[in-house]
Computed example of a mutant assay.
Amino acid sequence: MTRIREGSETTRPSVFWVLAVLVLPLINLSVRYRITDGGKFPRSGAFVMAPNHFSEIDPLVMGVLSWKLGRAPRFMAKASVFSIPVIGVLLRKSGQIPVSRGGAVRGNEPVKAAERLVRNGQMVVVYPEGSLTRDPGLWPMRGKTGAVRIALEQGIPIVPVAHWGTQALMPRYSKRLSVFPRKTVLVKIGDPIDLDEFRGRNLDTATLNEATTVVMEAITHLLEDLRGEKAPVKRWNPAEHDQKETGRFEA
């Protein structure tokens, strides 16, 4: 495990200390981290952390990973969660960002949140896939553009992260947590993705999709290293499969 530097976000009193008291005991009891290239994880400055996503427990596991590496994690979270008593207050106080159903963001909050990130030198965790992967083999599926939009609009790095093992803790689509025996979660941190070729361009759909493809390829390569196998040549496209299932697909 990479040593946390003194003066990191985790050493400063904040509402995250309350969250850590609630979450850390459970994760430490049930998860053993094996981190590769932890030194690549930025210890200061604003950036977007972009992990793969295949279990409902992923945000907790990745949030604790960030905390152990010295950074206070902030997520794009479902807006409905913010209405839960106590939890909603903690989410707001810790700077989590509400996202309404379907991926739309409430008001102008993501823009304001991104500006705060840069101003305060904070990080945000954005799952580029937007939801749990639907790929049968749990490989990263086609990504959405939220992560690269924040990175490009704010001029901050986007760091790819792959992990493997949370499916043993909580299988995809399951609500049942398997705490014992303790599970090993493999993590690999990638180099910040070079998005220079997209900076200065009009951030239209084509540009954002192209940049998102670069991010998804980086995450997939990291996951291939962790799993010791190759991902399918063609990335799973949820929209394409939905069209086939409803008979609306056109070749």
Rank of each mutant, 00 (worst) to 15 (best):
I4K: 11
E6V: 04
S8C: 09
T10G: 07
V18A: 11
V21W: 14
L22V: 08
L22C: 08
V23I: 13
L24K: 13
L24C: 09
P25A: 10
L29C: 07
S30G: 14
V31G: 08
V31C: 05
R32T: 04
Y33L: 03
Y33S: 04
I35A: 00
I35H: 05
D37T: 06
G38V: 08
G38H: 12
K40D: 08
F41D: 01
F41P: 01
P42F: 03
P42Q: 08
S44C: 07
G45S: 12
G45T: 09
A46R: 12
F47P: 02
V48P: 00
M49C: 06
A50G: 02
N52Y: 08
N52K: 11
F54A: 12
S55A: 03
S55Y: 12
S55R: 10
P59H: 10
V61E: 01
V61C: 11
V64A: 12
S66Q: 12
S66P: 06
K68E: 08
K68G: 12
L69F: 12
L69W: 13
G70P: 03
G70M: 04
R71N: 11
R71K: 14
P73K: 09
R74A: 08
F75S: 05
F75Q: 10
A77P: 10
A77C: 15
S80K: 15
V81E: 14
S83C: 04
I84L: 15
P85W: 11
V89D: 02
L90A: 15
R92N: 13
R92G: 11
S100M: 09
S100G: 02
R101F: 05
R101W: 13
G102V: 13
G102R: 13
G103H: 02
A104V: 14
A104F: 05
A104D: 14
G107F: 00
A113K: 06
E115T: 02
R116E: 13
L117G: 01
R119S: 10
R119W: 00
R119H: 03
N120G: 01
V124G: 00
V124I: 13
V124P: 00
V124A: 04
V126P: 01
